[in-house]
């Protein structure tokens, strides 16, 4: 237990949270429930029906990106956990290396690769193929999300798998479990906390991104983030509607996460 005297050490962070997390939330909520002319009401939320396709598209693409990250990231993290410390160190460095570069630059680089006269299409052109429509598609947007957020899946999964005690796996093997059973009934259930935080860390920024869709979707794949940005910095300048969209998006994300965590808890109960 942390002694009571040390509690004040948390004060700076609590202050930070209050000023930069709680008060903005209060302001956003206030805007969401007020109209341009100042009256209180649900008008902003009623308008949101028009944006249903945008909500659906955002969550669908974020879901795809998360699934791809999980399919790519989990096996990698699992394989890496069985390597020597030196290999692990080098591999983790490579996973994190791109993050040292500016996010926008990395996404810009993808534009040059996917462009109609970009690297891929120029290469294919040598064989008389194409040009293929790669950029300004939903696929390009998902690719951008996967590329940018994959490390956020690998790192938590790896950290958790690595901490699974070898004796647990040995015990399962001693009790006659083959490799599949050991993975399905021991390693995977124990790695779920890492998977869940990985999913959260990929899904949330994917659902709310606006710059990836702008750069790789060419303004044709409108996501929630773009919609919100339009309300604050576009012609519209409707802070109230923008706030309402933000609130609903937050609630939907919280809902998704709650459902996911339920699923995770049950997993623990059954297998541990």
């Amino acid at each position: 237990m942390v002694s009571r005297r040390l509690k004040w050490l948390a004060a700076p962070y609590i202050l930070w949270m209050g000023v930069f997390v709680v008060s903005p939330l209060v302001i956003v909520t206030f805007f969401a429930f007020t109209a341009r002319d100042g009256g209180f009401g649900l008008d902003n939320f009623l308008q949101l029906r028009a944006f249903a396709p945008v909500f659906a598209r955002s969550f669908y693409l974020a879901f795809l990106a998360t699934a791809v990250c999980l399919l790519l990231g989990y096996p990698f993290a699992y394989a890496l956990s069985r390597e020597s410390a030196r290999v692990q160190g080098a591999a983790l460095l490579l996973v994190m290396l791109p993050m040292w570069m500016n996010f926008l630059l990395r996404t810009y680089a993808w534009m040059n690769i996917l462009e109609n006269n970009g690297l891929i299409n120029r290469f294919l052109g040598n064989f008389g193929i194409g040009p293929l429509q790669l950029i300004n598609t939903q696929g390009a947007v998902v690719l951008g999300m996967v590329y940018n957020y994959l490390p956020f899946m690998i790192l938590p999964v790896f950290t958790v798998i690595q901490k699974i005690h070898a004796s647990l796996i040995e015990a399962a093997q001693d009790l006659g479990g083959n490799a599949r059973v050991v993975f399905a009934r021991v390693v995977f259930p124990l790695s779920l906390p890492g998977v869940l935080s990985g999913i959260t860390m990929v899904f949330v920024p994917s659902a709310s991104t606006f710059i990836i869709s702008k750069l790789l979707g060419g303004g044709k794949v409108l996501l929630l983030g773009d919609l919100i940005e339009m309300q604050f910095l576009g012609n519209a300048y409707n802070l109230h509607l923008g706030s309402a969209i933000s609130i609903v998006m937050m609630l939907l994300v919280v809902l998704c996460m709650t459902v996911m965590n339920r699923f995770g808890d049950r997993g623990d109960v059954i297998y541990v």
């Binding site: 462009e115 006269n117 970009g118 950029i135 300004n136 702008k214 060419g218 303004g219 044709k220």
Partner: peptide, 16 residues
Amino acid sequence: QAKMMDQIFDKLTSGA
């Protein structure tokens, strides 16, 4: 192909 603002400069200049 797309709708955009400042990036139009590059897209047209590069021939994309």
